[in-house]
């Protein structure tokens, strides 16, 4: 059998996905037996022009991590899509927008104002913002255009599979790679993970009727080791998050933040979590409810930490 041709790329991401890919350890040798890596900026010295030169559909599989927030990323996504038979969104950013997706609470100008003007560490020498093109003495220089809105990969190009996580757990990555190596690919559109149910299904904490009278933050107390964190007032998003990670965070008393995305079939993870929390607030008095909910310091960041661009509203409306 001919060796697979594999490409790996990064867009709006932190680099954690590359580390996660390397976490498969010496199984990378198995991967090398089955596949040639033709493009991987973090590890292989290949240039854009090398990719441009490839024939359409000449790459078997592209693992694409990161969201799309500028013109270069969009260009690369479209080019790799054309060159690849199978496009896989790797990690929370490519799948749902990820942490960069929270940029959709603002627009380009607001972000630039903060980064290039308002931060304490910025020199106050006037309003200097990045421009897409600049005429230097040496000639015209270009940098990518920064977009107002962060998109998920499948909002830009067609995507065959999704590997969730921030970053994906080693076993999740290997589940996908093994399927690739063995040529046993699931139906198109599958989110590849060991579980289709929520994180609770992986979690060994005891669950009971939920009634929340007070919402806590993690630093405030040491939670009971065996009882569901949500029942203890910690906003554990595990109830609304696909399992498969092994419920690693809640097992060590850290509430799940939702990186594996929504449970199979769910449209809008954050809305589902919000609705669940609203349903278990233990009060019928409006004033008391307001007081209880005022302890949620960052509602969007809590409910939509990795999925704002994938939500029904996608972004904040800014006038």
């Amino acid at each position: 059998m001919a060796k697979l041709k594999l490409a790996l790329y990064w867009a709006a991401s932190c680099g954690g996905c590359e580390i996660a890919q390397l976490l498969i350890g010496d199984r990378i040798l198995k991967l090398a037996e089955a596949a040639d890596i033709v493009f991987w900026p973090v590890a292989i010295d290949a240039k854009y022009k090398d990719v441009e030169a490839m024939e359409d559909n000449s790459i078997d599989v592209c693992l694409f991590n990161g969201a799309i927030r500028n013109s270069e990323q969009e260009h690369m996504a479209r080019m790799l899509r054309a060159k690849s038979k199978v496009m896989i969104a790797y990690g929370a950013c490519a799948c749902r927008g990820g942490i960069p997706g929270l940029g959709n609470l603002h627009n380009r100008q607001q972000i630039f104002d903060t980064v290039y003007r308002d931060t304490a560490s910025t020199e106050k020498n006037g309003n200097i913002f990045p421009q897409p093109s600049y005429k230097a003495p040496e000639g015209e220089l270009e940098i990518p255009v920064f977009y107002d809105t962060v998109s998920t990969l499948n909002q830009v190009v067609d995507v065959e599979y999704y590997i969730p996580g921030c970053p994906p757990e080693e076993k999740t990555t290997w589940l996908a790679l093994e399927a690739l190596i063995q040529g046993k690919l699931p139906p198109r559109g599958t989110v590849i993970s060991h579980n289709v149910k929520a994180v609770c299904d992986d979690c060994s904490r005891k669950r009971d009727i939920k009634k929340i009278k007070k919402i806590h933050r993690t630093y405030e107390f040491i939670p009971e080791p065996e009882i569901c964190l949500l029942e203890q007032g910690l906003l554990c998003v595990g109830v609304a998050t696909r399992g498969g990670c092994g419920a690693l965070c809640p097992q060590v008393s850290m509430p799940c933040t939702g990186c594996y995305g929504p449970v199979e079939g769910v449209i809008d993870q954050g809305a589902h979590f919000l609705s669940a929390v609203a349903s278990v607030i233990d009060s019928k008095d409006e004033e008391e409810i307001r007081t209880i909910l005022s302890d949620v310091r960052d509602p969007v960041g809590t409910c939509y930490r990795y999925s704002l661009p994938d939500s029904l509203v996608r972004r904040a409306s800014i006038k």
Binding site: V199, R207, V239, V263, S279, V280
Partner: peptide
């Protein structure tokens, strides 16, 4: 039932 994770959010509602 293939999606119920036994979180019990619904149980008291």
């Amino acid at each position: 039932e293939t999606l119920c994770s036994a979180c019990k959010v619904c149980n008291a509602l």
